[in-house]
Design a protein around this nucleic acid. Sequence first.
DNA 1: GTTTAAAATTTCAAGCTTGAAATGATTTTT
DNA 2: AAAAATCATTTCAAGCTTGAAATTTTAAAC
Lengths: 145, 145
Amino acid sequence: MSDPLSKRRLKLWIRLLGVTRAAEGQLREFLRVRHDTTLPRFDVMAALYRRREGVTMSELSRMLLVSNGNATAVVDRLEKDGLARRTPSETDRRTVFVSLTPEGLAAFESFAADHEAEVNRIFAGLTEQDIDLLTEILKRMGGPK
Amino acid sequence: MSDPLSKRRLKLWIRLLGVTRAAEGQLREFLRVRHDTTLPRFDVMAALYRRREGVTMSELSRMLLVSNGNATAVVDRLEKDGLARRTPSETDRRTVFVSLTPEGLAAFESFAADHEAEVNRIFAGLTEQDIDLLTEILKRMGGPK
DNA sequence: GTTTAAAATTTCAAGCTTGAAATGATTTTT
DNA sequence: AAAAATCATTTCAAGCTTGAAATTTTAAAC
């Protein structure tokens, strides 16, 4: 009665998508209600926080696995709200560096611990051993290099 | 040097999101290039295929973990293209059943095997044992009930 | 050195997605 | 049975997202 490998991989993918979407939904709700922000904005700010010295638009979209146009749009909105800023490169006039403003930095720091706690709550069922196993398998499943 | 559990859960979530987005990107590209369709349309059609007798809008959005408004929009477009249809309930005038038209059914059947093969290609690195392990853990991680 | 190709970003139209509010229908309470 | 609460769906505005085309700049080829 066991499915062939191909069918099992398909079912696994559907389950993986389900878990991810459910968690995304909870995080989105959490960010909206508690911090009046959105997941895409949080993702961009997290990337800019990780690379405090600034990133190019291309790097940003590669980091987040979104299109260039998308990165432009989200950064536009963050910039309009004074949370991010663009700085043209001195050496290459095609390139711009994006970074958090002081306000953006402060805002992100006010999200970050709370966000981690929420992720923790969502995945409270995972033991150290689960994490070891999952990490190992996910590494082999690819994702961003 | 090992992170506390909380940090490890956070990193795992980021990795999980990365794997899922990368796979979604590949599938989206595949559906666009080879079958001239999109992931959301495919997801809706797959749900309607699984429940050939028809589903209500609410069931549909619960199945796919999307908002009601979203389900309405995608079904609208499928209906406009003649791939899905709405049938009002006889017994409850609030309810509509959505189902695939014959054209929609044929279209989905022409995607399905190919889609499964593509998922298989993307997750070729997963052995039977990986799948057992992952399935077990993902079940405990929640997702749609 | 001029043409050609490649790269970084933005713009744009179309489609996706959400959450809130509106509409209409059914069920529950009083 | 009227009032109130609940339910199913749609509508709407705002934001998200993509992929393709356009712009501008740099690098490569000739």
